[in-house]
Nucleic acid binder design. Structure first.
Lengths: 372, 372
DNA sequence: CCACTCTCGGTAAGCGCTTACCAGGGCGGG
DNA sequence: CCCGCCCTGGTAAGCGCTTACCGAGAGTGG
């Protein structure tokens, strides 16, 4: 095997630049950071030396001195690997679509400000999550935490040391939160099912019981159902886990118990709907003919399913971008735009609720025209 | 609006710990890093102080001093946002599945070694990609570059300053590369189509012309076709771009030109297959009845399509994990396991090639049983 | 023509760690 | 019983930057 590192040479330092330009390191720094704007001639010489040497300041040194790392940490919860006969990953990959799109949103926003993303995931049963997150905190200027990565007490502790923004959580004394408008979105969906489609029995396939999103979605649905006098079904048997497997299991065990299904299944999120829909089809049900199914989030795959999934669109990437901007203002000790930021959601009427199939529009380029 | 940062207090430093434990900072450092193992009593006192104060060393300071940041940079190419009537993202999200899964693989491997991931994307037409990547390089110990983020000359320049591992690229003097076994995988697929299904005309819907993966896949297919005396169709009209839209466009414009389609469409990757398949269905073709379609990669959505996509499985997460391990040995100035590392691939026979529909197995939990 | 102000570089002091080097104490062997 | 060695902890020198502070020269008004 040939040599792999012929001559990795240490990158030039600010001293090298100063020497090459015939000035002091202070001048180099000043030119580069635009302070006290130096004389044109000095500036030119420095800039030329920088270009010639390809100088880029070391992140650690800069961070240590300027007390600003220009890095934000993003932590999400990793779903345990499902080992199947085909190897791992059958389920995990899917389940993180939502997270990935948010992260992309954060990343794009961060990049615009010269920040980079430090990503880390923690295992569900991570014994030492707090420590690992703290380590990330010390490598960054602030943290964005996805849903349920840290219990409230630990979160409070963390937030005394680092600026923290949560996603789909709840704002606290020291942390800000960014979320989609669950209430409005779910209300719109519920009304569509009840008033447009005239369904009279509706069940809620829940997400994690302690998730604020789940609570808000359930509540909105229950409210509309109650005020419309529609039968609202829920309970332990309807407990999912935000994953496709959870949705499938709910349906399967219900069927195994001989429970008669309601006319519509409103799922806590798209993943759950995906699983539920699949299980229904496996058991010979017609979706949406016999049972309608809806999701929440509008993750990319939603429109590739057959039938295409009716769901509530969250501005997923915007959630991430907003979280970043809020965090950045906290880092800069500016007052953020708010502590509990709510982004609008909206109903995407597709097929799985019982609406007619879309036209021949190419379904992954644009969404089908709307209309019940 | 209430105060959002009541009292972010600076985290404790090593000096605080030393004072609390009644020892010098050197001792604290030694206890924490396990060097020159100090006396038990000293160790206990330090450890207790660390626990009480919740001390975690600052990443920048540690990095500057130890010359090790314990961060690896990962750079991928962002697909330009497609603005549709429904907003952006219709296409982008999908197209990055492959990248995201690889990144997850890197992340998990990195975490095991106490490293974190610094992720950054660059725009297709980024004017200053090199500089931005260099900035990331200076915030990390080494870089992992996805396909086509940097042209060869810039790559060479970069690799003189930082350890670099590429994914799906080519190994060079100073960089290592990790990839899937395109040749074996594509050969297996080609044989399946030709000998098991007896298809006699096959077209290759290409990926980016300069992508090593694309070149290798095309070559393997062409070889098998030639040796079997099968008609191999390709050319400018068959040029895709690794995206769903590319696959769809190839099919649509071919049809518009009145070209008669071959019996099987072998696509450069799953995204392309997805788009091609969709376009075929839109135009009234039966897949696989009239035209068979195959992909490459086995991204998660592949098995959710109707028909389920026959494709070559790459160990996507493993590609990432392997890239990390190779990079880490370069960072540690150890000789890596190799400079051009090839991971095995294998044919996933599903429906889109013409094989029979799977049994009632839940398709996202395990894959359907195999067999033509 | 001199005192004063202003501009612009340089000098040096950190930022919070790691670690080379040194000093002191306990101990074994001559 | 003394010398030298080993073990341990402290002292201090950086790591590569930013920036407060200072001093020298140029420009201005009385």
């Amino acid at each position: 095997m040939a040599e792999t590192q012929p001559n990795i040479q240490a990158p030039p330092t600010i001293y090298d630049v100063a020497r090459a330009a015939g000035v002091s390191i202070a001048s180099v720094s000043r030119v580069l950071n635009g302070h006290r704007n130096p004389r044109q001639e000095t500036r030119d010489r420095v800039l030329q030396a920088v270009a010639e040497l390809g100088f880029v300041p070391d992140g650690a040194a800069r961070a240590l001195s300027a007390r600003l790392k220009e890095v934000v940490g993003v932590v999400f919860r990793r779903v345990p690997w499902v080992e199947t006969s085909e190897g791992a990953f059958a389920e995990e990959d899917e389940s993180l679509q939502f997270t990935d799109v948010i992260n992309r949103g954060i990343e794009v926003a961060a990049q615009r400000r010269g920040y980079n993303l430090l990503v880390g995931s923690i295992d569900v049963d991570e014994h030492d999550a707090y420590r690992r997150i703290m380590t990330m905190a010390r490598k960054s200027d602030g943290l964005i935490l996805h849903d349920r990565v840290l219990e409230p007490s630990k979160l409070a502790q963390l937030s005394t040391h680092v600026p923290v923004v949560t996603l789909a959580g709840v704002a606290t004394q020291a942390t800000a939160n960014v979320r989609g408008d669950n209430g409005t979105g779910m209300t719109e969906l519920a009304r569509h099912l009840i008033y447009d489609h005239r369904y009279t029995t509706i069940a809620y396939v829940a997400g994690h019981a302690d998730s604020p999103d789940n609570i808000a979605r359930r509540l909105a649905l229950a409210k509309v159902a109650a005020s419309a006098g529609v039968l609202f079904v829920e309970g332990p048997q309807w407990q999912g886990n935000y994953l496709a497997s959870g949705g499938a299991k709910v349906v399967s065990s219900l069927l195994a118990d001989g429970v008669r299904l309601p006319r519509a299944l409103v799922c806590a999120n798209d993943q759950t709907a995906l699983g539920a829909m699949h299980a229904l089809v496996q058991h010979g049900f017609d979706v949406p003919g016999e049972v309608a199914v809806t999701g929440f989030d509008d993750i990319p795959v939603a429109r590739h399913l057959r039938p295409q999934l009716t769901t509530i669109r969250q501005p997923i990437a915007d959630l991430g971008a907003t979280a970043f901007e809020v965090l950045r203002s906290m880092i800069a000790h500016r007052e953020p735009a708010g502590r509990d930021i709510v982004l609008p959601t909206r109903l995407m009427r597709r097929e799985s609720c019982g609406c007619l199939p879309a036209s021949s529009q190419s379904s992954w380029l644009t969404d089908p025209p709307q209309g019940a």
